[in-house]
Design a protein around this nucleic acid. Structure first.
Lengths: 187, 187
DNA sequence: AAACGGCGGAACGCAACCGTTACGTCGTAG
DNA sequence: CTACGACGTAACGGTTGCGTTCCGCCGTTT
């Protein structure tokens, strides 16, 4: 019975507000204003700010990223880096993600939701990417997927979301070479 | 003329409040309550929340971390990782840093202050650690300090401050080996 | 044609916080 | 001993947001 177009407007408004002021200062009233919607329309859907944000974020976070098999580890890796770096350079994502991560440090419910999404993706990356490479003989048997994922996502996140420095032409290539060498060494 | 003990109490209260509620929801009144101090004492020192937080944070952020020369790259690296990982595991630091980083994405003044501190440290690490290693012949001539710093700090920050997963016994050792291999490969 | 229900708008009482001001206390410098 | 000034307390008017309620509008269902 709830109107779909209004729900969409609210979702978009929440994302924009999250990006602009962060979770801490996000207010229902501001969301309603931005969505061009009455507060009642929001309270008819969710009972408070936390619940609203969590549901909206969960939907986005749980979208599965397809990890194609390019046939070689360096191909898989470069593709993954491309996908992640593109995502992390999107204005809204690069503001919302660090904000919610910080908020998660003090709100167990947010932490749990994000951790679940994060762990899911980490596992997907770790098992598929590394597993394939090991199966192909491109990485040694004992390669630790945990360390591997840290070494792949960490530097990108650091540079794009924390240090906020741009990525040069050859950065991803250099980085691919470096990571490959790193993982070969940890066997 | 301002009483030093009161200034200290306020500084501590600000750090605690930052950790607990984040910059977005930090209020002068809460700081005053927590410090056991009147609001007037705060407004006598700073004219608003941003100025107050910036000055207090700057002091902490600009403390120089001594980077000792252990004689070998892997020694230097392992020591650095130890220092950084210890810092990132401190409760208050691990809550304040991501929070301010997120806030920096939308507040230019915070961004500038943090970037200055960050860049200073990055340069220190890059030039000293990598420079020494290159001079010793442990890393190739053309090693890119930028990539190097990303590969060193990124994964640690990712794991400790973002994914919030504990570091195992042998993690730093494995990681040292991996990073060393990675950097040798990028020459 | 009538009933239903989601909608926006407006207002409610309540709480928190802003930045400022006035006041009385107390330690210290002169 | 006196004057100064930083201090805590309390109150100010104003703003913002909470979550709720009531209203009249309007499209859909029956």
């Amino acid at each position: 019975m709830l109107r779909g177009d209004i729900t969409v407007a609210i979702r978009n408004a929440v994302m924009s507000e999250l990006a602009e002021v962060g979770y801490g200062r996000l207010s229902i009233e501001a969301v309603a204003r931005r969505a061009g919607v009455g507060k009642t329309a929001i309270y008819r859907r969710w009972s408070n700010k936390l619940e609203m944000v969590m549901e909206i974020i969960s939907d986005v976070a749980e979208r599965k990223v397809p990890l194609p098999d390019t046939g070689s580890f360096s191909g898989d890796l470069q593709l993954l880096l491309m996908i992640v770096s593109t995502a992390l350079q999107h204005r809204i994502a690069s503001q919302i993600i660090p904000d919610l991560m910080a908020e998660a440090a003090r709100n167990p419910q947010i932490a749990e939701t994000l951790q679940r999404a994060l762990r899911t993706h980490q596992q997907a990356v770790g098992e598929k990417l590394i597993g394939q490479a090991v199966a192909r003989g491109e990485l040694p048997e004992g390669t630790d997927p945990e360390v591997a994922v840290d070494m792949i996502l960490g530097p990108l996140y650091w540079r794009l979301a924390v240090a906020r420095q741009p990525i040069g032409e050859d950065y991803l290539e250099k980085f691919t070479v470096a990571v490959t060498a790193a993982l070969r060494a940890t066997g």
